[in-house]
């Protein structure tokens, strides 16, 4: 019975069907399935599958995003139940995302946010054109584990370094880890500005984020 339900849950995520994933989450509650079990044995399997498919070029961005949305919807349905049980889902970590000051290109960053949420991170997405003090302020406010910054332009990617320098000045690293991404970001750049992680795509970003919070195996 449970096995069948887990399969349906994973499939609802793969199909990006938020209505169905919510319905299945409710069903899990009805039959007294532990919400964490529903997430880890059901829904997460679907997210991982679609992530792998995307990485292999078999799935496409709309499918990836819709899977993430369906995952978010299912988790939102299960969360009140988790609270009741007093065992709130252990978050993978808190992440502040922003596109740096002067840059308004955020599709990649939004995708990273969706995938991180779907993978169990608590994501605060500040949006575009965010100055260093705002990003750092928000990170301190929510006690973030990771700051993730995107930039599309070679003229704005230098702002990523400013944020890192500011964090170092305040002695906030390694408490807060920094991930960078965006079209012009190379491994060289990532090393030069001494960031903690970088990825070329949203699926890779999840892997890096897990490594940065010491949960690579989850």
């Amino acid at each position: 019975m449970s096995e069948e339900l887990f399969k349906q849950m994973a499939q609802s995520i793969i199909d990006g069907d938020s209505d169905l994933s919510v319905e299945l989450a409710k069903k899990a509650i009805e039959i007294n399935m532990h919400p964490l079990e529903a997430i880890t044995k059901g829904f997460v399997v679907g997210v991982n599958y679609i992530g792998d498919q995307f990485g292999a070029g078999e799935a496409f961005l709309p499918e990836l995003v819709m899977a993430g949305e369906a995952m978010k919807a299912a988790v939102a349905t299960l969360e009140p139940e988790l609270l009741k049980l007093g065992s709130a889902r252990e978050t993978m970590g808190r992440v502040v995302l922003a596109t740096v000051e002067g840059d308004i290109h955020e599709i990649g960053k939004t995708l990273v946010g969706t995938m991180l949420s779907a993978s169990g991170f608590e994501v605060t997405d500040l949006g575009v054109d965010q100055p260093a003090d705002k990003i750092i302020g928000k990170a301190l406010e929510i006690d973030a584990h990771i700051i993730g910054m995107s930039a599309l332009l070679t003229t704005t990617m230098v702002r990523q370094r400013e944020v890192i320098e500011e964090l170092d000045k305040e002695g906030l690293r390694p408490r807060i880890k920094v991930m960078v991404g965006g079209a012009p970001i190379t491994r060289d750049w990532f090393q030069k500005i001494k960031a903690d992680g970088y990825s070329e795509d949203a699926v890779g970003a999840v892997k890096i984020a897990k490594e940065l919070v010491g949960k690579a195996d989850q």
């Binding site: 496409f60 499918e63 995003v65 939004t110 949006g127």
Partner: peptide, 30 residues
Amino acid sequence: KGGDFLKQKVTMQLFREEQHLPSSVIDRDS
């Protein structure tokens, strides 16, 4: 937000009909 339309079900339903998805012969990499 720029990604708004990526979250729409209709995008997933229609993108294959609107766009030809080329093979690896066509380079659209970074």
